[in-house]
Design a protein around this nucleic acid. Structure first.
Lengths: 260, 260
DNA sequence: CGTGCAATTGATCCATTTCAAGGGCCGTGG
DNA sequence: CCACGGCCCTTGAAATGGATCAATTGCACG
């Protein structure tokens, strides 16, 4: 397997799953053997998973952004969640016979594929990792619930919450600088993610800029005072479940074994 | 264990999990031994699970309706999903350290409690049931995704979709008559579920009544022509995943073992 | 026979959509 | 090197779906 792929996977797993529990070298090694070592690429706007097509393998995103979305009858897109480096594409729904939504690349993507059976064997031999994967998935479910809550708020709150969510999730995988990060989404895509019109997204962004809440220019988002923004838009970090919560040796929350 | 509880559980499991795969008597027996046989009761408006409190056991609803909800900062309630007889309360999130939402009873409830460890042992001894549980959970996740889509539609579509969803889910557990079913939700609760105001729910219901789409009176909902309603509000049954999809002996969808 | 919550109605307000058009940026091809 | 097409961003004006505020009615229940 190519040396660089091992590095990239260990890097991303270490950061992503490492938010749940610290990984030892043996576990990192086991994780990095999950894929066949081929880095796959996909250009922006292509679909990773199309509606109605069951995925054939899990995909781990190494770099780039993607999003789950449903196309509505009138052609509008409703985004269901955003996938960042370190996220797995298909852990939610690989048991169901057909995906009821699509996953599209927002930017050029690099990812590796993980065959289901390899993952199964890994989980059998490394139960702690099984729990980490379960945790990873439930984190996604929780974020999806938050998306529902978000849709019942005002436009400024929707955008603000999205920005805060992305900031913390990117920071968890080391992709932020102090107060800013690369932000590749267009206003049209923001509209799809927040359930607003691109026109209205535009005006709301201007309002946020006027209030010094953000600087968004050249695909780069600066949040000068994240605490102020969080407070203003009533953002709650809790739902991201990014903090270490699975005790290493102590009591594991009841039911943790269930899905592992 | 009380005879009647066994009957009630077998009845509900047979219908609910039976939508995924047919259960044999041995499996039904194993399922019915999951609880200690005490039927618990709770009156309407009480909380089964409060925000911030991790559940101590799974709850299987035998009769009555409940809903997951979040209380927003301004006091409004946003419903995240509705729980019907045959649904499990806490399968989503029992691994996470604290629930980030509450579950409240919409009507008086009857339920049984299932200790996590018993369920774990059951899954070990009956892998097919493990898959059925996983399926059950993912069905809930899928429904939650649909909830997001629903919030980006018009008021009439939101209510219509909710009615269709409830009709099919209730029918799957044998709780509908030909074209109608008991409907205990108030307009205020409908508002919380659809992200609308109760005032606007009221007016939209009147519009639906005027167009012969529904008859809603005395906690009973009649849908004279469900096909017409589905078509009008662009309802799609697919996301409910209620149809038998796990082949008994043949190929199980890739990854089905993952969480079992 | 009040008390309280659910349903209803009316009037007004406002956030967001819709429609329409112009401007900037970028890559591509002549 | 410049012209062109395409996408994204921006702006304006008008329309509207739904929210808000404020009563009133109806109904079940102690």
């Amino acid at each position: 397997m190519a040396y660089t792929v091992v590095m990239a996977m260990n890097e991303i797993w270490g950061r992503r799953l490492g938010n749940f529990l610290s990984l030892d070298p043996d576990e990192l090694g086991a994780l990095s053997r999950l894929s066949d070592g081929r880095v796959r690429r996909m250009s922006a706007r292509m679909d990773l998973v199309r509606e109605g097509e069951p995925p054939q393998a899990l995909r781990l995103i190494l770099s780039g952004w993607a999003c789950r979305y449903r196309t509505l009858e009138d052609g509008r897109r409703q985004n269901l969640s955003i996938l960042l480096p370190g996220d797995l594409c298909d852990l939610h729904d690989d048991v169901l016979p057909a995906t009821d939504h699509a996953i599209g690349a927002l930017t050029p993507l690099q990812f590796v594929e993980i065959p289901f059976d390899k993952l199964e064997r890994l989980i059998e031999s490394h139960p702690r990792l099984g729990r980490a994967f379960t945790w990873h998935m439930l984190t996604g479910v929780s974020a999806q619930r938050e998306w529902i809550v978000n849709l019942s708020r005002s436009s400024l709150e929707r955008l603000g919450n999205l920005f805060c969510e992305l900031y913390y999730r990117l920071r968890a995988v080391g992709l932020t600088e102090r107060d800013h990060f690369d932000f590749p989404m267009t206003q049209i895509e923001l509209a799809g993610a927040t359930g607003l019109t691109s026109v209205h997204v535009n005006r709301t962004l201007q309002e946020m800029r006027a209030n010094q809440l953000i600087v968004l220019k050249n695909r780069r988002l600066v949040i000068p005072d994240i605490a102020a923004l969080e407070h203003l838009v009533l953002f709650s970090r809790a739902f991201l479940h990014l903090d270490k919560g699975m005790t290493e040796t102590g009591r594991v929350p009841a039911g943790a074994m269930l899905l592992s």
